[in-house]
Design a protein around this nucleic acid. Structure first.
Length: 144
DNA sequence: GCCAACGTTGGC
DNA sequence: GCCAACGTTGGC
C-alpha cells in the first residue's frame, strides 16, 4: 500500500451454519480462503481487496449481526472450487470479535447507517463499507 | 414457512 | 438481445 492511502473496508456475509465466526477463529492466524462467491458484483469487490484491508464478519440467517473483524491476508486469486474459472477468492484471518455484536436491527435503527449496502442490498455477499460506517459500527460494537 | 428481490438460464 | 421462468438468498 502506498503512502497516505487509507485502507478500504468491507463486509463479508456468511450463514453461520455453513461457515461461522468460531470456525474462522479456529482457522487461526493462517486464515482460510473465502471461497464460493458466485456473483459478479461480489467478485468485483473481492478483486478490489488488498492485503491488510479489514472486513466485518456478518452472520446472516441465524444471528443477523456483525460478530467480528477479519483481515485480508492474500489478494484475489482463482477459486479452485469454481470449475468455470470465472470466480476467485481472497484469504482472510480473524482479527478480533466485536465486544458486542452489532445487529441488523441496530444498523437499521441508525439513520447514519441507512446507506449501508447491508441495508439496501442485503443479498450481496461481499460489500464495501465506508470509513464513516466502519467507525460507527466499531463504536456500537464497543471497539471505539 | 412465506415471499420479495435479485441473478441466471434458456427459448425465441 | 429480450424476457419469462426458475432458483436462491435472506429478512420477516
Amino acid at each position: 500500500m502506498s503512502e497516505g492511502e487509507t485502507m478500504a473496508h468491507w463486509l463479508l456475509k456468511t450463514e453461520p451454519s455453513s461457515w461461522s465466526w468460531d470456525q474462522q477463529v479456529d482457522a487461526g492466524v493462517k486464515g482460510t480462503s473465502w471461497n464460493g462467491v458466485r456473483n459478479h458484483s461480489a467478485k468485483l469487490h473481492l478483486m478490489a481487496m488488498r492485503i491488510g484491508d479489514h472486513a466485518f464478519f456478518y452472520h446472516s440467517g441465524e444471528g443477523k449481526e456483525i460478530v467480528g473483524i477479519v483481515e485480508v491476508t492474500k489478494a484475489y486469486y482463482p477459486d479452485p472450487t469454481d470449475k468455470s474459472g470465472a470466480f476467485g477468492m481472497v484469504d482472510v484471518k480473524a482479527v478480533k470479535p466485536l465486544k458486542a455484536p452489532v445487529t441488523l436491527q441496530e444498523i437499521k435503527a441508525e439513520p447514519r447507517l441507512k446507506e449501508m449496502v447491508l441495508v439496501n442490498n442485503s443479498r450481496l455477499s461481499v460489500q464495501p463499507v465506508t470509513d464513516a460506517e466502519w467507525a460507527l459500527v466499531c463504536a456500537k460494537g464497543g471497539m471505539g
